[in-house]
């Protein structure tokens, strides 16, 4: 397939957060001051991306209840058992099959298993906090995990992140590559979070909120949250050189 025939819907950079959002302090010194240079003629360089169907995954790569077992005292992680699932579609509603979805998160107490996280809430010996899977032929993905806790961070004097799961999706090309965070429906920390507030449009914030879905929960076992991901719309273009 000649990928130069593909096009992606232009990214709306007023919908996404701007680079410079001073309420989120780290963005102040890490945001370019020059304008982005727009590539008016996108090429195969931007219109292609990796296909991970040959990446060999382990049986528990998408199951965070099982993929970090303490060898000495194997058990289940502490916390609210949930299924996190959803569909990856493009802006035209077309499913994105066989694409890589990756996620990472803190444990039930808001502590990350990262050597740089020194928060006093303890690690969970049976929880690592990383998952990955490919979407199926209809664009669906699924993880099993525990609901992460909120945690404090050095931004304002008393700033706390809402409970969130970092979600990363490749999509069909590097043009569709997206990293976001999923927040949980109803969390009162969402509207006061400086990172959430990097986004100006309240409707854009809604695209990052996972919804409780009782129909996919398992009675006496776990709840379920649905989080659909929308990547840039792809279509063929015609009459390019008219």
């Amino acid at each position: 397939m000649h990928d130069d025939n593909k096009r992606y819907v232009e990214r709306d950079r007023n919908w996404h957060p701007p680079a410079y959002a001073p309420g989120y302090k780290t963005s102040v010194a890490r945001s370019p001051r020059q304008a982005l240079v727009s590539l008016h003629q996108s090429s195969v360089s931007e219109l292609t991306g990796p296909d991970f169907r040959q990446l060999r995954m382990g049986p528990y790569d998408n199951d965070l209840l099982m993929n970090f077992r303490d060898a000495a005292t194997p058990g289940l992680p502490v916390g609210e058992r949930i299924i996190l699932f959803g569909r990856v579609v493009d802006q035209f509603g077309k499913p994105v099959p066989h694409t890589l979805v990756e996620m990472w998160q803190a444990n039930a107490g808001g502590r990350y298993r990262h050597k740089k996280d020194a928060y006093l809430a303890p690690l969970d010996p049976n929880f690592g906090g990383v998952g990955r899977c490919l979407t199926d032929e209809d664009g669906w993905y699924r993880f099993r995990t525990i609901k992460p806790g909120p945690y404090p961070w050095l931004n304002g004097i008393n700033t706390w992140r809402p409970a969130h799961i970092h979600v990363s999706v490749m999509g069909p090309a590097i043009s569709t590559r997206l990293i976001t965070q999923m927040y949980f429906e109803g969390d009162p920390l969402i509207p006061i979070c400086p990172i959430v507030k990097t986004i100006n449009d309240p409707e854009a914030v809604e695209t990052m909120i996972g919804r409780l879905d009782m129909s996919r929960s398992k009675p006496m076992d776990c709840l379920a949250y649905r989080f659909d991901l929308v990547v840039r719309g792809e279509l063929q273009t015609y009459f390019e050189n008219q």
Binding site: H16, D90, E102, I179, T180, T198, V205
Partner: peptide
Amino acid sequence: LMLRETASQTAGPYVHIGL
């Protein structure tokens, strides 16, 4: 007429856990 793209967020300080 189109769906809106899911909004981006920073990968944060612990991106390495996942990637």
